[in-house]
Nucleic acid binder design. Structure first.
Length: 342
DNA sequence: AAGTAGGGCAACCGCTTTGGG
DNA sequence: TCCCAAAGCGGTTGCCCTACT
């Protein structure tokens, strides 16, 4: 037996809201509030809408403090930084931008901001389709990474290279905004290695007099296996899991104005589960590959221990967020927007 | 002028989380 | 502790507008 529908679908109007409906909803909520029950609201007001639809309309459009229109460069900056750090957690990102809704930010990201930053992705994907069968097979493992994770790594790579053109020479610079965990750092290093060796799968063109163009990465499984001395499928799955785990923790640590977001029980549970999983993975890896597991593995473990050492997770993240946001290492979207948008 | 493609955005869908009984 | 309804959330859809052919 499924859950009862929240409203009578047959008697509910769908589609764009009329000005009359808007006015009724707005007037009612301003006078009486929502009464803590969105489902009952449409009946009270006398409109044939689903309660969820009313809620969405109010939150995304009718609320008096909603900001419509263009996003400022500062807002771009915040959105990019947070997206790279925590992924598509739009509600959390929206909490840092007064007057903006998660839906607004999501749309803005998907339709504009992402294109600005990953503008050349389409081209490179098309070029990849012409790649060899061997390449394609080689890549199958890395593609098990979530699109979001790949995208964020690409963004990191791109932003870093824009911020620091010397990257292509192997210089390792601190990467703001988020403190990557050692796994992520390893991936970034692998990208740099690929870049250094002019691997055709990772083409980064630094033009002397024009915009820098960074192609998405696609490290081969062979390379990953060499770096970690572990089966690539194992690593790829582990990395993906680890990143989602870390991200679950990160979402709790955004302390910028106006609101402090407390970690939910679920997030804390996810974080603890992540650490347990990391421990398990590392002990298994050490057992199976005792002779070849390198320092990176140990660093992963140290990373977990550091986060688990009683040090307040909030501090761990918020310090990064706040100290860097005013430091010279903070990422300025204008760098990207100036250099990368054609 | 008509047709078409693509972008932007509002709204919907369905899954997850929360909170009260 | 469990169950269920409501709220929250992110992904997706589809409409409308504009630019281009």
């Amino acid at each position: 037996m499924g859950r009862a529908p929240c409203c009578d679908k047959a008697n509910v109007k769908k589609g764009p809201w009329s000005p009359e409906e808007d006015a009724k909803l707005k007037d009612y909520i301003q006078k009486y509030g929502t009464g803590g029950n969105w489902i009952a609201l449409p009946q009270k007001i006398g409109i044939k809408r689903c309660g969820k639809s009313c809620r969405l309309r109010w939150l995304n459009y009718l609320r008096p403090d909603i900001k419509h229109g263009g996003f400022s460069e500062e807002e771009d900056n915040i959105i990019c930084n947070l997206y790279i750090s925590i992924g598509s957690r739009w509600s959390i990102i929206a909490a840092q931008l007064p007057g903006r809704t998660d839906n607004d930010i999501k749309n803005y990201w998907n339709t504009r901001l992402k294109k600005k930053l990953l503008g050349r992705r389409k081209q490179s994907q098309a070029s990849r389709l012409t790649g060899s069968t061997e390449d394609n097979n080689d890549r199958s493992g890395i593609e098990t990474l979530s699109n979001s994770a790949i995208e964020r790594l690409q963004l990191h790579m791109q932003l870093q290279s824009l911020q620091n053109p010397n990257l292509s020479q192997g210089t390792s610079m601190p990467m703001w905004p988020c403190k990557l965990n050692p796994i992520q750092e390893k991936i970034m290093q692998s990208l740099q290695l690929l870049n250094e060796s002019s691997n055709p799968l990772m083409m980064q063109h630094v033009l002397s007099d024009g915009p820098q163009k960074v192609e998405p990465f696609a490290p081969s499984n062979n390379l990953i296996e060499q770096m970690y001395s572990l089966p690539s499928t194992m690593l790829v799955n582990h990395i993906d899991n680890s990143m989602s785990g870390v991200n679950a923790g990160l979402t709790t640590h955004v302390t910028g104005t106006p609101d402090y977001i407390k970690p939910t029980n679920m997030e804390l549970q996810q974080y603890l589960a992540f650490q347990a999983e990391m421990d398990q993975f590392l002990s298994n890896a050490n057992g199976a590959n005792s002779a070849s597991v390198d320092q990176a593995q140990a660093n992963e473990f140290d990373f977990c221990k550091e986060m688990d050492s009683g040090k307040d997770m909030t501090t761990w993240w918020s310090n990064e967020f706040e100290s860097n946001s005013t430091s010279s290492n903070s990422w300025d979207s204008s760098l990207v927007l100036d250099h990368n948008i054609s």
